Simulated assay, not measured.
Amino acid sequence: MLDPTDLRILRQFQAAPDLPTADLADRAGVTPTTLARRLDKMRAAGVIRAVRSVINWPSLGYTVEVSLRVQLDKTQPRAFDEFLAQARKIPEVIEAQTFLGQVDARLSVIARDMPHYQEVYRDKLLTLPHIADIEALMHVSRVKFDETLPL
């Protein structure tokens, strides 16, 4: 498992993944060689899956975000697989989750504005297979968005 040095490296890496190796190593209190070796080891073990850019959707004109809670017709044996396969093809669906319980799936959908959302909803989302019920929750504000772990 991870030792205290690995955790220290991860804390610093989460905070500033784009820092040059030497600066990140200095912040983590290790040599650049040790940092590189340990990061490679954590990548190989699947601890670090990716480094990515987070894009501010409103700056690109996507001002509407909606969460859809979906109940599927579970009498169909492949309902989940077929629903998710089609949902993945919709560019405006930026996240899909499945659940146990009354809600089977949740989709996060972005749109430029309400007319665009209505178009996506009518023409793409409502055509997804095996939907028994769907509830739309309009996002009003993002109170917290943080993908860093408390290491």
Rank of each mutant, 00 (worst) to 15 (best):
D26E: 12
R27V: 05
A28R: 01
G29K: 02
G29A: 02
G29E: 00
V30F: 11
V30T: 06
V30Q: 06
V30D: 06
T31E: 01
T31G: 11
T33S: 14
T33P: 00
T34A: 15
T34S: 12
L35D: 00
L35G: 05
L35R: 03
A36E: 00
R37Q: 13
R37P: 01
R37A: 15
R38E: 08
R38V: 04
L39D: 06
L39I: 13
L39Y: 01
D40C: 10
D40S: 15
K41A: 15
M42R: 04
M42K: 02
R43Q: 11
A44P: 09
A45K: 01
A45C: 01
A45T: 02
V47W: 06
V47D: 04
V47A: 11
I48P: 13
I48T: 12
I48H: 05
R49A: 14
R49L: 12
A50K: 12
A50H: 05
A50P: 00
A50Y: 00
V51Y: 01
R52P: 00
R52K: 08
R52C: 07
R52L: 10
V54Q: 02
I55T: 05
I55M: 01
N56C: 09
N56A: 08
W57T: 06
W57D: 04
W57R: 10
W57A: 03
W57P: 00
P58W: 10
S59K: 08
S59A: 13
S59L: 07
L60V: 01
L60S: 11
L60H: 08
L60T: 04
G61M: 09
G61P: 06
T63F: 14
T63K: 15
T63M: 11
T63W: 12
V64Y: 10
V64A: 01
V64N: 05
E65G: 07
E65S: 07
V66G: 00
V66H: 05
V66F: 08
V66T: 06
S67N: 07
S67W: 05
L68E: 05
L68W: 09
R69N: 15
R69T: 14
R69L: 15
V70C: 05
V70N: 00
L72D: 03
L72A: 10
D73T: 13
D73A: 15
D73F: 07
T75C: 10
T75P: 05
P77L: 12
P77G: 06
R78A: 03
R78C: 03
R78T: 03
R78I: 07
R78H: 06
A79D: 03
A79M: 07
A79E: 07
A79C: 13
A79V: 02
F80D: 02
F80S: 13
F80L: 15
D81E: 09
D81R: 07
D81F: 13
E82H: 11
E82D: 13
E82P: 04
